[in-house]
Nucleic acid binder design. Structure first.
Lengths: 239, 239, 239, 239
DNA sequence: TATGAATGAGCTTTCATTCAT
DNA sequence: CATGAATGAAAGCTCATTCAT
């Protein structure tokens, strides 16, 4: 989280006071006139709220606890974010902004197809491992039927260029005769994410049920290998 | 909650009134003499609670709403289940008992390996489709770090004989030269579940992000086909 | 408590069903027709209720707990005693009946004055020691402004013949020149009781404040000696 | 409740909001800057709670009624005192602080022994007369086995210097040959308090039983005279 | 920009009591 | 004589939110 707003523009979800839940019409220029402290307070609140929401869900999260975690006055949260729901939306938006940024840094088009898929799989796995709160937020938002996401103009623009990149990778592999034909990139992407996500997000219940330690370093390494095997095993062309 | 007790029918999680710090000497036979209404009331409450918890999470669930949904006096819920957390545990236990029962009905050992895997995949997919509340409960429980499940002696005994059956299927396929070697049955099972689960559980956010309808009948059919392809494509031996 | 209803008449507070809180018009004859079990159940309930009320007060007492302590169905308590308040009254009445009975057994008129006062003091002290629940009930009832006692025709008849006996003892002592003149028997009796009562009833706070163990056998013996010294020291005639 | 803190004025038990699991670094000086209303609100709540607890006991007291009596929002009580038990403890502590303060104002060391004992007796009697709620609180707390008092670091320091003063008075009286020897100051103090306390605290039941008006001015005057006679009569040396 | 004080609505839970047998 | 099931009312307490400065 430390590299969060490296630039003043790209990944910010910081708001003007009382712009509660609104779209995102406060652009770069405005940020200049705002004090450093204001930005910092908002960022600290967002981080605290991210932890709180991911640990307790929307209904279970407590504004008091967020204020305590952020070491700010509760009133300040309302000053910046309006209310609980808007705060949750801001948290969610920031989470999406961050993963999108990270994905952008991947350069899959430059790699051979198999390697590109391997990289994407590894990246997805690692991102979930390093950002369990992102998975938790997804859980929470899905429990709510994505009602916040749907309202967010900010996230909806994210029509995942990743899918286009993946399509291109699949096309290259197919042209080279090493990938099977007829693969839907979105379906594949969901499978890559799902295989990782279910294991990581549900490890608490799974390890209880199977009575097996699933989060040790060696277990995680084994899982990543399995995930890669499944995806590449599926894609390979054995004709 | 130590007085949860199994009765004659396999999938019951009906309890004695939670207030009685009694011994637990009311065994199977006694349940027969208990008024049918008691059992029925508990079952109705459990069903209402299942819906409520899966729609709103643990923190967001409202006891009032559960009572209303079950058309019983709110007090009765406390009479039978003690408190909200214990009610949630009872709901969770019943959900696990039910899926375990359904799995038991599968007869994978009698089928050819490929068909067995296909059946298991289809079953898992269909169960999630037909029981979205089960997925939601898993989500909720995982948000809580499986703290309820861990306390449940009832569920922990569920050491999923399914894994053993799957191991036997994999061994047969491998012996016949049609499955690859070295496949961990638990990893495979988690992948089968995960590929289905992520799509279904997160369809709300996914369809928002990809701007694609994921839950139409045709979309669901396509997904099931993809899922089966991934699993069988991974398993096939092309040496 | 085992010698409670040695006779069928004198000390009973057992009621006919639904005679809730009423005076006491069910006399000896009726008891004959009532089953042993009924009497026993009522007595068990009264004992359980006595403990509960003396430990938790009127507001803090729980009907559930009384039923549990008495090992009877909660409904039965209502069957016999009508409601909580009436049950408390029954408890209170029984407590008064018992101390009155015990006092009756004292034969102060036969003793020399000093010895008679000594015996009364010792008796009062011992009775409080052996019946802490009686003191607690007094506390509870006084917190309520004696509203139950006032309604009880049963207890009001108890116009304490003890005072008359004490008056006679004081008169004898004064006639013999060993007791001071002008002592009001009721005042003296309240002092005898109060000196013992305060120490015993409030020992919990007193021992905390003075950081001294007040209820050890030696401490209790010392206190009884002090109490006797105070009363006899006050009464002695030094002219 | 560890954040109870003493401020400049001796008898305050005012607290920081109970929610803040904060450090406790708000010392005396800070209280000055806090809005006067906060202190006032707390004091008003404490007074209302004192009345409520002394009239109804711990279990019978109603938070709603306390709020109504104090004319504050019920939520505010929880804001300052956390819960009912803690509020009761605060009430109890304030009651002890107040009587201790009043005792401190007595200047027994300057008086001749007989007069000192007479003053102490009169003071104790009068304090109970004027503060019946203090007696009631003692009753309530003793019913609970002094569990709150024991937890209070504040009250436990109150190791009643009064006993030391009384010891000195007794020594003087004995040296002058007017008091008997071998009197334990604590025993004597408990007797002084007990003789007054029992009469006043239990007057409701006593007046019912003895059918005598005990609280009229003349009756109270007679009792104080009796009490003084008992104590001084006991102490006098007639050798 | 920031904060301590205060609140209304509503939550989970408790309790004495009654119903139906 | 006895009981398990059920309930209305109200309790203690929580929570997101606003007031006033």
């Amino acid at each position: 989280m430390s590299d969060l707003h490296a630039t003043a523009t790209a990944n910010t979800v910081l708001t003007s006071p009382a712009s509660s839940g609104a779209s995102g019409d406060d652009a770069a220029g405005v940020a200049e006139t705002r004090s450093r402290d204001a930005d910092r307070s908002q960022q600290i609140i967002l981080e605290a709220a991210t932890r709180e929401f991911s640990e307790h869900g929307l209904g279970g999260a407590r504004m008091d606890r967020i204020a305590e975690r952020a070491q700010v006055n509760k009133r300040l949260i309302y000053y910046y974010f309006g209310n609980k729901e808007s705060l949750f939306l801001a948290v969610l938006e920031q989470a999406y902004v961050q993963i999108r940024e990270a994905e952008t840094r991947l350069q899959l088009t430059d790699l051979p197809p198999i390697e590109a898929v391997r990289q994407l799989t590894r990246f997805t796995w690692n991102y979930f491992v390093e950002h369990p709160e992102f998975m938790a937020l997804l859980n929470v938002e899905n429990l709510q039927g994505a009602q916040h996401l749907r309202r967010s103009s900010r996230v909806q623009q994210t029509n995942f260029s990743l899918i286009q990149i993946l399509e291109q990778v699949l096309a290259r592999g197919q042209a080279q005769g090493i990938f099977r034909a007829g693969v839907d990139a979105m379906q594949l992407y969901i499978s890559i994410a799902g295989i990782s996500y279910f294991y990581l997000s549900n490890h608490a219940t799974l390890s209880t049920i199977f009575d097996r330690e699933l989060m040790s370093p060696s277990a995680r390494e084994a899982r990543l290998m399995h995930v890669t095997d499944v995806i590449l095993g599926y894609l390979r062309n054995d004709s």
